[in-house]
Design a protein around this nucleic acid. Sequence first.
DNA 1: CAATTGGATGTTATAACATATCAATTGGGG
DNA 2: CCCCAATTGATATGTTATAACATCCAATTG
Lengths: 161, 161
Amino acid sequence: MPTIGFHKHDHATCISSTLARAEAHCTAHSLKFTPVRRRTLEILLAEHRALGAYDLLAILSNEGLGTAPPVAYRALDFLTGAGFAHKIEGLNAYIACAHLGEDHAPAFLVCTRCKTVAEADTAADKGRLGQAAAATGFKIEKTVIEAMGICPACVEDTPCA
Amino acid sequence: MPTIGFHKHDHATCISSTLARAEAHCTAHSLKFTPVRRRTLEILLAEHRALGAYDLLAILSNEGLGTAPPVAYRALDFLTGAGFAHKIEGLNAYIACAHLGEDHAPAFLVCTRCKTVAEADTAADKGRLGQAAAATGFKIEKTVIEAMGICPACVEDTPCA
DNA sequence: CAATTGGATGTTATAACATATCAATTGGGG
DNA sequence: CCCCAATTGATATGTTATAACATCCAATTG
Ligand SMILES: [Zn+2]
Ligand SMILES: [Zn+2]
Ligand SMILES: [Zn+2]
Ligand SMILES: [Zn+2]
């Protein structure tokens, strides 16, 4: 169900409503949604795929929004800090949040072939990890939950397998 | 069995029995447990902490076991491939498996302060991730499940080392 | 209107992590 | 013994991420 990314959906609305929510969040929290930050989020939103920082930088650079690595990393820091984007640790790449505005602990289904990412909301999935943590006095600050594999589309396309 | 790493235990036995199991596994599967590979596992086993590839390389290098990055990465490829070690994606670092020989899908509690790692065995418990995957036809090949946070010792406010 | 101040950017350089490639060596099976 | 395949050695390069410092700019405030 909440696995947007592998489903067909009204993507134009998906993008515009997410941008609107981001805008609202920034206004509400006095955050500056500057051109580079906004454009970076737009680029990520355009695809439900993970992009590397240098992929983003290349696009930003083409558009005259900056040429050096810190440009991309600063934008990504802002977006991830504000909860507008997530880092996929298993790919060292970044993706727009699919549940922007909702308080959530994200989990991902990551296609290693096409890099499409579906974001599932697993608020309840602290289960096992949470138990283990509680049992030992470990204080969780952030969870990384990623399933790496092959998405439905790629499963069918497999040239050999 | 949950969370070795934050508990006191007989570490000498912990090391030697794990090495013995690794040895047995290699014999059984005709894998070559060469000096660099064995020593790399020993180094990882010596601490229940994640070490970076270059940390390992520095130690191997001191001991005359090789000087260039591929030395460490090849050893780590072998160890992770054989299931003797795991990569902690959230740290870009590596740790010896705490359940060597058991078939398992590992989950980790990672202290971002001292890098101590506890490995919990989450066996068949793929929880919501598994459900979401099944619902969409996604084929999971590997899971990355890591809780980043502060371990009991560090919570006490005494930096670990 | 200065002057102050704090976040955001620009720029250069480098740190940290990982792989490509090819030659040389080793070690077991035919 | 020779062959094959895996392993090692060595050099170079690719990829991801941050340090450090200068500068700009817009909002406060005296
Ligand atoms: Zn999200
Ligand atoms: Zn795919
Ligand atoms: Zn393990
Ligand atoms: Zn700790």
